[in-house]
Design a protein around this nucleic acid. Sequence first.
DNA 1: ACAACATACAACCGTTTAGTTGTATGTTGA
DNA 2: TCAACATACAACTAAACGGTTGTATGTTGT
Lengths: 109, 109
Amino acid sequence: MTGSSEDRADALFHALADRTRRDILRRVLAGEHSVTTLAAGYDMSFAAVQKHVAVLERAGLLTKRRHGREQLASGDVEAVRSVASMLDELEAVWRGRIARIDLLLTEET
Amino acid sequence: MTGSSEDRADALFHALADRTRRDILRRVLAGEHSVTTLAAGYDMSFAAVQKHVAVLERAGLLTKRRHGREQLASGDVEAVRSVASMLDELEAVWRGRIARIDLLLTEET
DNA sequence: ACAACATACAACCGTTTAGTTGTATGTTGA
DNA sequence: TCAACATACAACTAAACGGTTGTATGTTGT
């Protein structure tokens, strides 16, 4: 269905629309961190941070791998790029508008 | 305060995290449209669409100008670019991680 | 001068979100 | 083997969200 690409966009932008999640994403893009290590950096419960990590994971912005009793989270730069390409598409729409205006202005008849 | 840049990011990503708003943004990036014209394109009340336009306006993604009794909305491509640059910053964080890994791998001692 | 139009906003409703605490399930041996 | 640790998830609460209807305020004259 046409919805699933929009579902993905909803999930990605929603995941990015919270400053704690953006901060977590920065940290896991810089390197692997366990959920406990991440949680230590915020003034909220472990469970709250674990839920933020789950939101990022569901959106595909991070992945986890098991290492002993820890889950190491790592940022997925490809997901970040996919968001960037959605914005590129918006900019392309805008360029189309400008091109149409230029066409009118330079029309020869 | 350090918050205001994060406030802006919150508003931008939140505004983009709804498919109706993304669609409205596409339309106003392609050209000016009145709120009524935009509302005609969706299966919801005029008031609902007007609220979506207000969310996009508060985030700085569109501006309005008065033309008689209409308010013509126009997409602001600079705001779209500012979101793209936030994502570029995230990608730069990731590149720093890769650079650090490469440094370890090519270490000479 | 006024009916119709375009917009804005308040009040309300059901759902989702972001946080909390508490509990269950694995895993380790720092 | 078992106490401590790391994680996941359920249940709950307050606030925010996305939608509705109704009303108020400008603006026009296709």
